[in-house]
Amino acid sequence: MRLLTHNMLSSNIKGVTKGFPLKIEVEKVVEKQVEINHDFLRNIFPKIDWKAFSDAARTMGYVELPEQAPDPSVLESDLDFLTKFHHALLELHLEEGALVCPETGRKFPVNKGIPNMLLHEDEV
């Protein structure tokens, strides 16, 4: 699971109000290289919750991202930033671990890179 997906997931348990961001419990992180695409990064940037993203990256052991959301102008000019943004968003994978609901503490397991968001009957 990439951090892009982590940024798009929230706890879906009945009664939970926001359920975002899910805390990450890391057992294993893997890196898979993919080609950088500046257009995608520029387009996706406004949709990213930066605080959740940079915290998640830190939890995964990547500390190169600014804590505060940078000014969007860096997307036009700062190649170093784009490279780091790309790496954290699309190349870091939570291979084994869990996503934890911030309100209930319920754990959603992540095995072989796949988050399991299925709920039990009493959670729907």
Partner: peptide, 13 residues
């Protein structure tokens, strides 16, 4: 890939 019912967990964000 996400193991979920339709898009549960993704719908908000």
């Amino acid at each position: 890939l996400i193991n979920t019912d339709i898009a549960s967990g993704l719908e908000n964000r």
